[in-house]
């Protein structure tokens, strides 16, 4: 759901990710937050958690930059979720 912000002329994108519990959502937030966007400027990304939902909001100058950032975020997110499934308390590895 990309939309153009008339005032600042920015592309905006937002994503809500439901987790089984607030603990998992908080873990995902802290795993996904530390790394900054690789490029300087042109894009910003904000992660927040409320209850068991992780919300991400992007704001970018160009669609191309936004696509790269969203793509790589989704790759990262699915890796974190797979890690939780395999090594989380619900499914101990042994």
């Amino acid at each position: 759901m990309a939309a153009t912000d008339g005032e600042r002329n920015k592309l905006e994108f937002s994503l809500d990710v439901p987790f089984p519990s607030s603990r998992e959502a908080a873990i995902a937030l802290r795993s996904l937050s530390p790394d900054r966007e690789p490029r300087k400027g042109g894009i910003s990304k904000q992660l927040t958690v409320s209850d068991s939902t992780l919300s991400v909001r992007w704001s970018a100058d160009e669609a191309r930059i936004l696509r790269v950032s969203v793509n790589s975020f989704l790759d990262h997110l699915s890796l974190v979720m797979e890690t939780m499934e395999m090594f989380g308390p619900r499914c101990p590895p042994q």
Partner: peptide
């Protein structure tokens, strides 16, 4: 390399928190 480093760091951060 940035992208491979992030991949590994993501799993390390996640398991550190899970465990």
């Amino acid at each position: 390399m940035g992208a491979p480093l992030v991949t590994v760091a993501l799993v390390a951060r996640t398991v550190a928190q899970l465990w």
